[in-house]
């Protein structure tokens, strides 16, 4: 599943990115979309089987990312429980 992890700060997001990439997890650092509430402006997007690795990286919240709607490039974000 495609998950977005949000962090407490940009530094925390960068640290998590380095750690996850070093562990072989493909992640993409992206600006947190406006519909997702986060103190930090950047989060990590990752295609993972579940949220465990992202939670271990220090994520504050996880969001399940939907495919872009037809004719619309923005994705949907639902809280991942």
């Amino acid at each position: 599943m495609l998950l977005l992890a949000t962090y407490a700060s940009s530094h925390a997001a960068l640290r998590a990115e380095r750690a996850l990439k070093a562990a072989g997890v493909a992640v993409e650092l992206i600006p947190v979309p406006r519909q997702v509430q986060s103190l930090c402006g950047f989060g990590l997007l990752a295609e993972v089987p579940d949220g465990a690795l992202l939670q271990e990286s220090g994520a504050e919240n996880l969001w399940q990312v939907g495919e872009p709607q037809a004719g619309h490039w923005r994705r949907t974000y639902e809280p991942y429980l």
Binding site: L14, I30, P31, F42, W73, R74
Partner: peptide, 14 residues
């Protein structure tokens, strides 16, 4: 970091 974010955002823009 801001540049990476800008370019990602552009890919998602309509």
């Amino acid at each position: 970091l801001l540049m990476r974010g800008f370019l990602y955002t552009l890919t998602e823009a309509e």
